[in-house]
Computed example of a mutant assay.
Amino acid sequence: MTSEKQLKTCLDLIHNSNILVLATQGEDGVHTSLMAYAGSDDGSEIYMISSKNSRKWQNITRNPQVSMLIDDREGKLGVRRSQIKALTVKGTFIPITAPAERAAVYKLITDAVPEITSAFSENDNEIIRIKTESLLLLDGPKDSYYCSISS
């Protein structure tokens, strides 16, 4: 598989899913959370919504380095397990301060995952924007592809 095709596979995984596992680092160790998300068109940013009172929010405001796992295991755990693709996305939390950008990203997230709209309509919620730094694609049990994303 060419690197162009592998990068397309990475972007397809980002765009064809809306659930990921977010790993943050806190004072007491690593914390993981199952999160709904939306990705930018070019995959350079991943967006989520969280309560400002959550452990993940506290962790990323202290240590902005995160890792995320996106996969396509749904429907493949039985006889097609060897065809599962898993994408590890390493990135950095960057706050969104501009009200217009915040509104546009909030709409992007709620359009991608409308089921979460009511759960995150409270004022104590904030958008988590992760700037993608690298992608590690595992395509089945043997094939892998690493890509560093330039700023």
Rank of each mutant, 00 (worst) to 15 (best):
residue 65 Q to F: 09
residue 106 Y to D: 01
residue 35 M to L: 08
residue 21 V to T: 14
residue 110 T to W: 10
residue 14 I to T: 03
residue 102 R to M: 12
residue 41 D to H: 08
residue 8 K to T: 10
residue 9 T to P: 05
residue 132 T to I: 13
residue 37 Y to S: 05
residue 22 L to S: 00
residue 13 L to Q: 00
residue 116 I to P: 03
residue 113 V to C: 15
residue 17 S to N: 15
residue 126 E to I: 13
residue 99 P to R: 04
residue 59 N to L: 13
residue 132 T to H: 09
residue 15 H to V: 00
residue 111 D to M: 07
residue 139 D to Y: 02
residue 100 A to Q: 14
residue 32 T to M: 06
residue 74 E to C: 05
residue 130 I to M: 03
residue 126 E to V: 13
residue 16 N to C: 12
residue 57 W to R: 02
residue 89 V to I: 14
residue 36 A to V: 03
residue 104 A to N: 09
residue 91 G to K: 00
residue 118 S to T: 06
residue 73 R to E: 10
residue 28 D to F: 10
residue 127 I to E: 00
residue 11 L to D: 06
residue 95 P to A: 05
residue 19 I to G: 06
residue 9 T to Q: 08
residue 128 I to G: 04
residue 104 A to P: 00
residue 64 P to Q: 13
residue 67 S to G: 07
residue 17 S to L: 12
residue 78 G to P: 03
residue 140 G to N: 10
residue 24 T to Y: 10
residue 139 D to K: 00
residue 116 I to T: 04
residue 132 T to E: 11
residue 61 T to H: 15
residue 14 I to A: 04
residue 43 G to F: 00
residue 118 S to L: 05
residue 48 M to C: 06
residue 142 K to C: 06
residue 41 D to L: 11
residue 14 I to L: 15
residue 120 F to G: 03
residue 23 A to E: 10
residue 115 E to S: 15
residue 22 L to Y: 05
residue 138 L to R: 14
residue 8 K to M: 11
residue 102 R to W: 11
residue 40 S to P: 00
residue 97 T to K: 12
residue 147 C to T: 09
residue 20 L to D: 01
residue 8 K to W: 03
residue 130 I to P: 01
residue 90 K to M: 07
residue 42 D to H: 10
residue 14 I to H: 01
residue 54 S to E: 13
residue 131 K to N: 12
residue 111 D to R: 08
residue 38 A to H: 02
residue 87 L to K: 04
residue 67 S to W: 10
residue 90 K to Y: 11
residue 109 I to Q: 02
residue 8 K to H: 08
residue 84 I to H: 04
residue 136 L to P: 02
residue 96 I to R: 08
residue 95 P to V: 00
residue 11 L to K: 05
residue 42 D to A: 12
residue 106 Y to F: 14
residue 57 W to N: 03
residue 146 Y to I: 07
residue 121 S to R: 06
residue 45 E to C: 12
residue 23 A to R: 03
residue 133 E to F: 00
residue 134 S to G: 12
residue 103 A to P: 05
residue 2 T to K: 03
residue 42 D to R: 05
residue 20 L to N: 00
residue 17 S to I: 04
residue 36 A to Y: 09
residue 19 I to L: 15
residue 26 G to F: 15
residue 5 K to V: 12
residue 33 S to Q: 14
residue 123 N to Q: 08
residue 90 K to H: 14
residue 145 Y to K: 15
residue 27 E to H: 15
residue 131 K to L: 14
